[in-house]
Amino acid sequence: MAKIVGCITTTHVPSIGGAIAKNLQHDPYWSPFFDGFTPVHAWLKKVKPDVAVVIYNDHGLNFFLDKMPTFAVGAAAQYRHADEGWGIPIVPPFKGDLDLSWQIINTLVEKEFDIVTCQEMLVDHAFTIPMSLLYPGGESPPLRTVPICVNTVQFPIPSARRCYKLGEAIGSAIESWDSDARVVVLGTGGLSHQLDGERAGFMNKPFDLQFIDSLISQPDWATQYSSTELVELVGSQGVELLNWLAARATMSGKVRKVHSNYHIPISNTASGLMAIEPAH
């Protein structure tokens, strides 16, 4: 059976793509963020995942309000990035993993998640930036991918409780997959930030730090909050932490923290990074 080697959760702020293109990794503004990835690069070299399941939210590249799925699973042989309108560089395509896509689709529907399946799917910065951060160098990462998109754009968004259960179901799909593949699960976005309204610039460091800790000590801690409560606590766009929660929930056994980093600000966002592995 396939094995989940761990879970990585990271911010996906678009301007990171610009910083990579301009080689600003060692710039004083950017280094507290980029330096956080060094231990995760070493860990990835050690655990060597074959496939990444990437739980993220689309910001208006593949999905528009004409059709807005709550949960969508990619089932394509290849996923392309494209022009998002405000000028971050377009990165090379990513390889899909059709077998794992359908294993996840079949399991989720069996477990009563009414998902949308996508045999064509563009992936936006919320997918591409974490890949560029984890596998720097500008070439396509050396692993296959399955994108899973969560609606965090239009309310009602799925509750934290529902996203946690989605993660558990994705985890069981991976662990019952008849394959010897090593799988890493990514959850992207957050942490606290708000781009819109007079409250723009809002961040909540105490909450973010408590949330990061909770992923080890009590992973379902954030499921106590309603979606509106989360907006109040982490900002309108901070609700992307739902992707972190779903990614974490894929790991059913005891876990240990490999590494975490938290830095304010990257653009308008409190940036977070965490890598978790099974505790043996």
Partner: peptide
């Protein structure tokens, strides 16, 4: 978990819900 009341107002924040999505579609 408390019931999710979309009527709950957060200062300086417009929740993008069905009302906004209908109004802003074009």
């Amino acid at each position: 978990m408390k019931k999710d009341g979309l009527e709950h107002k957060i200062p300086g924040t417009t929740i993008f819900d069905g009302t906004q999505a209908r109004k802003g579609y074009a």
